[in-house]
Amino acid sequence: MLRVAGPRLLDERDRSGVQLALDADPVAACMVASRVELAGVDSWRLGGELWGVGNKLEGLCFAGANLVPLRGERLALRAFADRARRVGRSCSSMVGRAELVLPLWDELSAHWSPAREVRADQPLMVLTTRPAQAPDPLVRPVRPGELDRYLPAAVAMFTEEVGIDPRLGDGGVGYRARVAEQIASGRAFARFEDGEVVFKAEIGALSSRVGQIQGVWVHPDRRGRGHGAAGTAAVVDRLIGMGRVASLYVNGYNSPARAAYARVGFSQIASFATVLF
């Protein structure tokens, strides 16, 4: 039986064990794996902390801008909740496999500020081959000089999806910088017509094995015409060409998006959940 004395803060000495744990669930762990592959395990480079439980990391959790439980039975999740209560909430959301996020939130909900929303059913989907849907040939990487044309669509997508304007607090300086970074890295894609974004999406996380697509958005005036499926297929085609598995997760209630992703060829392998603050 796993005996839990409390999670420990992991460092570079734990990297091989962390990598083994992430490799065991590469699609669900993509967000964290992409960070670890780039920055290692030490928190000062990682942009967050990795907490571990057990000699073989039977429990693993990332704590940064998002709180991401990666593996663990109930005792490990309870240990993570204890640590999270002690340090206080600094994350903007909890996200990951539903069977980990929801029990962890059960432990924390009485101690942290109330959630704005709990999205308990978010199918996690993958595609390992070229898309079944023909890719939109006009979807391409956004160029750095197109930031000002791309940014309004990014703001609209974020506001529509998350429920808050990402420019609040600093007038949009931080969000603009993040979008500019995505563009500079070649991971923002769009179809432009007359200088306006018709479709957009990003590769939000990119590990050595998986690319996670996020921020899929179609201009409201152009919805229902197949732009979402064809545009997503173009991004999938790029990922498959890079030797990655394509992945995304979608709200269970979003029937049009789920239908579009099914046309592209995605299939569900698990369920995510997100707690928004």
Results as ranks from 00 to 15, higher is better:
V235S: 00
V53R: 03
G54H: 10
G215S: 13
D194Y: 07
V4I: 11
G64C: 09
C91D: 13
F80T: 04
A270W: 12
R209H: 08
R140C: 02
L102P: 05
R130I: 09
R244V: 02
R97M: 12
G226N: 04
L75M: 10
L46D: 00
L75V: 09
R89H: 03
F272C: 11
D14P: 09
E193P: 08
R83L: 13
A63M: 00
P166C: 14
S207L: 07
A65C: 05
A84P: 00
E12P: 13
R258K: 10
L102F: 01
C61I: 06
R187C: 07
G17K: 12
L46E: 01
S185V: 02
L104I: 02
Q122E: 14
K56H: 15
R143N: 02
V216G: 02
A39C: 12
L22T: 02
F277I: 02
I203K: 06
G6L: 05
D82L: 04
W105M: 10
A190L: 08
A190I: 06
A76P: 01
G52F: 02
A154M: 07
G231Q: 01
L77Y: 09
S255K: 15
Q122S: 14
V198H: 01
A81M: 08
P131Q: 06
G52H: 04
G6K: 08
S185N: 14
L50C: 05
R130V: 13
N254I: 03
A84L: 13
G228I: 02
A21T: 05
R258E: 01
R35C: 12
A230N: 03
A205Y: 11
M31G: 14
G64R: 06
Q212Y: 00
V245H: 00
V236K: 01
T159R: 14
P256I: 09
G265L: 07
E161C: 04
V245W: 00
W112D: 07
V275Y: 07
A134F: 06
C61N: 10
R223K: 06
G186I: 12
R35Q: 13
V210P: 00
P103H: 11
V197D: 03
A120E: 12
L10Y: 03
N254L: 08
F199D: 01
L276S: 09
L248T: 08
Y253S: 12
R97V: 03
V118R: 07
G145W: 02
A260S: 12
A24E: 14
F266C: 03
R97I: 00
A177M: 07
G186D: 09
S271I: 00
E193C: 12
L276N: 04
M125K: 08
V264A: 09
F80L: 06
E193L: 14
S16N: 11
A134S: 15
S113H: 10
L206D: 11
L67H: 08
E37A: 12
P166R: 15
R209G: 10
G59W: 01
V32A: 04
D148F: 00
S247I: 09
G204C: 04
C61S: 12
G211Y: 05
R238M: 03
P103G: 10
F277V: 11
F192I: 03
L67T: 14
G172I: 07
H219G: 01
R78F: 07
P144D: 03
A39M: 13
S113D: 15
P137A: 12
L239R: 02
D42R: 13
